[in-house]
Design a binder for these strands. Structure first.
Lengths: 196, 196
DNA sequence: GGTAATTGCATACGGCGCGTATGTCAATTA
DNA sequence: TAATTGACATACGCGCCGTATGCAATTACC
């Protein structure tokens, strides 16, 4: 048997990532004790340092996992829509909704950038931007929207989306704020439609 | 004499804020040792805890100071422009430029949100959003732009601005990226102009 | 198939940074 | 001038992190 060995290792990595993800997503990166959440996974810091180098490395692994999930969700939303424009709008709304989930908000929008720097520079963790950029590119080719650089458009819109999400999430009246934010967001997107 | 006493205290506070601002803006909040930068100011951690409660409190004070400076700059830019629309665009460009300054970027956009939470919730540190919202409100009243909630618009635009700035700042080809980002940003803003 | 090298992970150790409790001296107040 | 307040320093303990080391199980090699 050569498998069990590899499997045990993969399982160890998965357990560490899982435990860290839970800790980072709830109490936050800075307040998560490596001793605590490794113990929770039935391991010690030794395993962590062996596999991920340091706490940051583990955060990177967690982020990569979450980003992959987010990208898959965005692609599905976009693909399921009847028209491309509707897919575009739905994709952005979905992004805002994801940014409202506490785990994503905390790890991807607060602690991640603070610890690892700008998300633009994260390796293998920009699936979301790429997904939106692709949609914009297609829309532009089909003449549905005005002339705009796809990556620039994607980044600006995603930044606005996450800003909206942050605003909603921290509001003391989420329902009211959500209406304002989404309304404003739609106006912003409408402004990108090509004049008939 | 009752003054010297008060002056000494104010000077102590200013020295602490200044030293912390330098440290936070360069090596970052997490890596700034309280012992180090208080010593640099000729003081100890005792003074820091006395005046600001803890490290977070000092960060708040630093942020408040920076935000006031930023707000003043934005108001001036907006007021100096020949027309309101030009003032609006200039204001946003100025915001992007400010977000490119390393100290502002680090403290206001990275460490600040990570340590204190969403900027929306910061007390007395949202002058920038208010400034942009005021401009939008005036533009709307004069019929220059489409119907959009001023605060929502301000937040979305500011989020997009800072996203653009982050993108530029971390690019390995800032000149090229800047052209793309500003170009895209102008397209976004043009979309908000009221149809003739 | 037995020995050597590698690998996965735990344990042990040292240091740094933080928060609190306590001390001290000058300035205010009466 | 005596009492009190307030500004700031000093002292102490603890938790967390990174590294060095140890050990057992697996793999590689002849």
């Amino acid at each position: 048997m050569v498998r069990p060995r590899k499997e045990m290792i993969a399982e160890t990595r998965a357990k560490l990532i899982g435990a860290a993800r839970r800790a980072f997503g709830t109490i936050g990166y800075a307040d998560s004790s490596m001793d605590d959440f490794t113990a929770e996974a039935g391991l010690t810091r030794g395993a962590l340092y062996h596999h991920f180098g340091d706490k940051k490395g583990l955060l990177q692994a967690v982020i990569q996992e979450i980003d992959a999930e987010m990208t898959a969700r965005l692609n599905k939303v976009s693909a399921d829509a009847p028209t491309r424009w509707q897919g575009f709008v739905a994709e952005n709304v979905a992004y805002v909704e994801m940014a409202l989930e506490p785990e994503i908000q905390r790890i991807m929008f607060r602690d991640g950038p603070a610890v690892l720097g700008d998300p633009s520079m994260w390796p293998n963790a920009n699936g979301c931007i790429a997904a939106v950029a692709r949609t914009i590119s297609a829309l532009k080719a089909e003449g549905f929207i005005v002339d705009i650089d796809p990556e620039a458009g994607a980044r600006l819109i995603i930044a606005a989306s996450s800003g909206a999400a942050q605003w909603i999430a921290n509001s003391d009246n989420p329902a009211e704020t959500s209406k304002k934010a989404v309304g404003g967001f739609r106006v912003l997107l409408e402004g990108l439609r090509a004049p008939k």
